[in-house]
Design a binder for these strands. Sequence first.
DNA 1: CACTCGTTTCAAAAATTTTTGAAATAAGGT
DNA 2: ACCTTATTTCAAAAATTTTTGAAACGAGTG
Lengths: 166, 166
Amino acid sequence: MTAECTETEIPPWEAEIIDLFVGIFDGFGLPKSTAMIYGTLYCAEDGMLQEEIAHRLQISAGSASQGLKMLQTLGAVKRQSPIGQRHSYYSAERSMRRLMGNVVESQLQPKLRSGKERLQELAAAIPAEESLARQRIQTLQTWQRKVERGMPLLSKIFSTGGGKSK
Amino acid sequence: MTAECTETEIPPWEAEIIDLFVGIFDGFGLPKSTAMIYGTLYCAEDGMLQEEIAHRLQISAGSASQGLKMLQTLGAVKRQSPIGQRHSYYSAERSMRRLMGNVVESQLQPKLRSGKERLQELAAAIPAEESLARQRIQTLQTWQRKVERGMPLLSKIFSTGGGKSK
DNA sequence: CACTCGTTTCAAAAATTTTTGAAATAAGGT
DNA sequence: ACCTTATTTCAAAAATTTTTGAAACGAGTG
């Protein structure tokens, strides 16, 4: 019969970090609620239940469900389902290396591949005398190749300590 | 007394490239009309007038103006204003190296800087005994440093031909 | 097997972003 | 100085995205 429950108040430092993530995620075009979920899990000591998260952030169960799903497909959040328990625990991927790797693999790579295909089809459909078209397409294919080649380096950047330390 | 004017029809290959850019820009959260403007200028043989662009893409003058402004602050489009002429020509930055460099400088760098500051202030405000908070903030600062250090490498990736060619 | 309770789904509502259209502005030409 | 035409601005409209809330679902439990 408790009117309200203060049990899960968010401390200022956490609110600040969550807000930081909202800004970062926003740069990637991801919803605020999703960013907040990640921020919460990022700060958390242990895994959390979906219900806890939703209650803590004051968002609906639907939002929490959708956000968590998205974060999982991005590879930013992992789910642990203890056997014989009807709920799962969620926890944030805190390794930048893995986080980046996951996002690149699940988002960038597919887009790159499809872009590559489109360019190939497009190039194949242009007769040699359309020099401007060929020129422009060719340049795009160069871009495509650069990004493709740069990808491995990218993951190297985030692997260890950032390259040369000291 | 011509009912419609077919003068500036967009050829299929150009439409396809424009659409490609719409997809890419969308990944960065940029409006479709802006992407279309960039795509058009990217394909163009020479510089174009804002009016031409708007008419060709069938978007309003307002959209064209705003989109071009955005593209300029991103460093993706350059404006040339011939003296003694009331209009300017716009052209796309087609060098990936410069394009990336401009975007990084105008968008990423500022965000990184402000994020760094926020983290520093946050860290300074947490007492030593708040070990979880300190831990989390510290990890974020490591992320921050990695990205900061990785930046120069990034621009290197896109500079020449993509690294090792053969 | 019926019950409980957490999760998922999805249509509708809310919020946000983008585009338009029209008025204000600016700058060249006469 | 005045006309003409390109551009900018900005409030309102349109389109899109995000969030909610409620119903359907599903997996353990008694």
